[in-house]
Amino acid sequence: MRILIMLALLAISSVCTANTGVAFVHGTGSQSNATNDYWKPEFVNNVRGGLANSANYVVINCDFTKYMWDSGAAGCLAGQLTNFINSRGITRLIVITHSNGGNVMRWILSNPTYDSRYPLIISRTVRVNALAPSSAGTPLANAVIAGNVFESVLGWLLGYKNDAVRMQQTSWMAQYNAQNLYGTAGRPALPKPFRAVVGTDVDSSPFDSDSWCGGYAENVGLETTQLWLNSCSDGFLDCSSQSAAGTVWFRDTARMRGSEPLSHNQSRRACFGLDTILRSDLGS
């Protein structure tokens, strides 16, 4: 009984002394001000409000037009996460990724010996909440690289023919998942939980106010590209790609206000209570 009491006290003590932080990791693109240009302050501020110390957050700004292992991608991410952990004394790190940001984070988790900074990041990471991760790539990347009509339709979304888009071709991601990354079927598990939030549809009716959340023009574009994807998709990624790595935390309609779906753009915005769910998760 005495031993059990001591173990309980130690567990309580470790929780009380934990210093939790959150990192926001953007998707494809080169960012210098991801708070304003990618996530929006409303989303970031609402989510970080769930921390015991709301100042314990970092918004990553890296060049995710590069391959995931590149110094401008995983190298930049590792550097910014390491600085954040050390400067704020973070003992519990929760990482929120969007789209291709999930691939870059999964590279770090899957390759601990690739960079001397990775082990610290992995040891402090509690979980990754991956919003619409492109874990198995997208047929739209295939089309962009092939140079057909999708290139003009998707230029604003994918950034044309950069290495990150090339990497997200479905056949390329299948090879990476089989050889370089953990967490997909038949592969070793990731060392920390990787939980996907899956977007299942796109609404773009001008008469539906929900279609305007996150940007009406963007949702119209995603509704168009959805025509070339599976019936279950967020306009950029099939549900099967979003669900390919780790576990599914939830599908949008199961937990969004009004059972609304999340388009690929809305899954990085304060839409339908997504920010509230992520905020609450920081305290668990």
Rank of each mutant, 00 (worst) to 15 (best):
N86D: 11
P41H: 04
L51S: 07
I60F: 10
Q80A: 12
S71T: 15
T82I: 04
L77H: 06
D63T: 15
N36Y: 08
Y67S: 15
F64T: 05
A78G: 09
L77R: 01
T35H: 07
V58E: 02
K40Q: 11
N56S: 04
F43Q: 03
A78P: 09
A34C: 11
N83S: 14
E42Q: 07
L81P: 00
S71V: 11
G49C: 07
G79D: 13
Y57M: 09
G75S: 10
V44L: 02
D70R: 00
G49I: 14
Q80T: 13
G72Y: 06
K40H: 03
F84C: 04
G49N: 10
P41C: 01
A78E: 06
F84Y: 03
D70P: 15
S54H: 04
A52S: 07
T35W: 06
Y38L: 09
Y38F: 15
K66M: 03
V47D: 13
E42G: 03
G72W: 06
M68P: 00
N36M: 15
G49D: 11
Q80E: 15
K66I: 00
A78T: 08
P41G: 01
E42V: 15
T82S: 15
N53R: 09
A73S: 09
W69C: 02
K40A: 09
N53E: 10
A55E: 15
C76D: 06
L77E: 07
D70K: 02
N36T: 15
N46P: 01
